[in-house]
Design a protein around this nucleic acid. Sequence first.
DNA 1: TGGACTATTGGTCACACATTCAATAGCATC
DNA 2: GATGCTATTGAATGTGTGACCAATAGTCCA
Lengths: 207, 207
Amino acid sequence: MTSSPVPVRSRKRPEERREEILSRAADIALEQGLERITLRAVADRLGVRPGLITHYFPAAEDLVIEAFARAAIIERERFFPADGAPVARLAHFIGYIGSGASASLARLWLNARHLSRFSEPLCAAVEEQDGLDRERLSALIADGIASGDFADVDVETACIRIFIAVDGAGSYVNSAADVEHPAHKHFLADVAEWALGLEPGRLGSAL
Amino acid sequence: MTSSPVPVRSRKRPEERREEILSRAADIALEQGLERITLRAVADRLGVRPGLITHYFPAAEDLVIEAFARAAIIERERFFPADGAPVARLAHFIGYIGSGASASLARLWLNARHLSRFSEPLCAAVEEQDGLDRERLSALIADGIASGDFADVDVETACIRIFIAVDGAGSYVNSAADVEHPAHKHFLADVAEWALGLEPGRLGSAL
DNA sequence: TGGACTATTGGTCACACATTCAATAGCATC
DNA sequence: GATGCTATTGAATGTGTGACCAATAGTCCA
C-alpha cells in the first residue's frame, strides 16, 4: 500500500550538483556542526546516494572544509552591512554579534577553531576566512577614522582587539549558564569603544 | 625469537586502577584532545584490555567528562599561585596565559566548549570548572581591592571581563597565524588593567 | 536515431568505535 | 591450603564512518 520507493534518478549539471552538495553541507555545518557533515547525511538531505557525494568530493575532508568556507562567507554578509555611516555599521555589527541571531555563526567558528587542531587544511581555511572578516572590519574602521567618527587609532590594532572580544564572547555560545550579566553583554561594545577611542556608552545604544 | 607476549595480568585495587585510568585519560585530553579518549587509547597506555576500561566506566562519555574535569583541576594550579601580593599573582596568571606554556590548557578549553554543544553533561562539567576558575580569580580580585592595589571595582564584572579576554585570546591557539602582533600579546593585560582600574602598562612588565 | 559520455546508483569493504559477556586468574579471607 | 570474590581478559556484536567500483541510465551530440 505504501508508495513504491521508485528511485527517481535526476541527473544534473555537475556545477549545479556540486553547488547543491556544498549548500546542504553548509547548512549542516551551521545547524549541527562540522563533524556531522557525513557522506550519508548530505546525501540524505539531497535524496541521493552517498556514493554521489564521494564522486564530487573524493576526500570527505575537503567537503567539510569547503562547507565551512561557504557558511562563513554567507553568514558574513549578515553582519557586515554594505553601506551606512561607520558608527551605524559598527553598531549593527556589534548588535548582531551580541544578539542571539549570531549563535550559529559563533558555534561554527568555535567548531572550526577547535577542529583546526586536527586538520592543517581546515586551519588554513579558517585563517583565510578570518582574514576576510578582518579586511571588512579594517575597512570599516578606516572609514570611521577618515570621517572623524573614530579616533586616529592604528587600524590593525583596533581590529585585533575587537575580534578577540568577538571570539571571547562567542566562546560561551554552547554554555547554558548566564551570559546575562551586563559585563558580558556590553563587553564587545566596551572593547570597541576603547579600541576606537569612542566615548564610553556611545555604542551602548546598539543593545 | 621475539619475546612471548605473555599477558602479564596485574590486579590492582579498584580505586587505584580508576585513578590510573582517569590520569591517562586526562593526559590524552591535554595532549591530543577529548575526542581521542577512546577505550583503546586509554587501555593501550595502561597496557590493559579495553574491556577493563568499560568495567570502570560503563559509559565512555563519563570517562571523557571526568577526564576533562581532572585535567582542568590539575592545570588550574599551574596558573593560580597560592600566595603572594595580588598584583604579583595577577601578573603570574596573565603571564602564564600569555606564554606558550598554557597552549594545551587553552586547547582543552576550546575543545570542551565546542564539545559542550553535543553533550549536556559535559556542558555542566565545563560550567563547573569555569565556576571554580572564576572563584579563584574573584578571590584574587577581592584581595587586590582590599589591599588597595586595584580600584574599587565590581568583582564579578572585572572577573567576567578578564575571562572573556582569556577565552578570546585562547581562541587562536590552534592557528598557525600571527599572534605576534603587540595588540594580541597585550590584550589580556590591557583588559585586566581596564577592568581593575590599574594604570595602563602596570601589568605590561609581566610579558 | 543511435552512440558516447558520465552522472548516478547499489552494493561492498575495511576500519574504528562502544558495548556486552562468559571465562580466567589474582588476592584476601577463612 | 582451600574457597570466594572480583579484577581482568578475550572474543564477539553492532553501529557509523569513508572509500571503492562495476553496473545503470540520463543527456547531449553527431
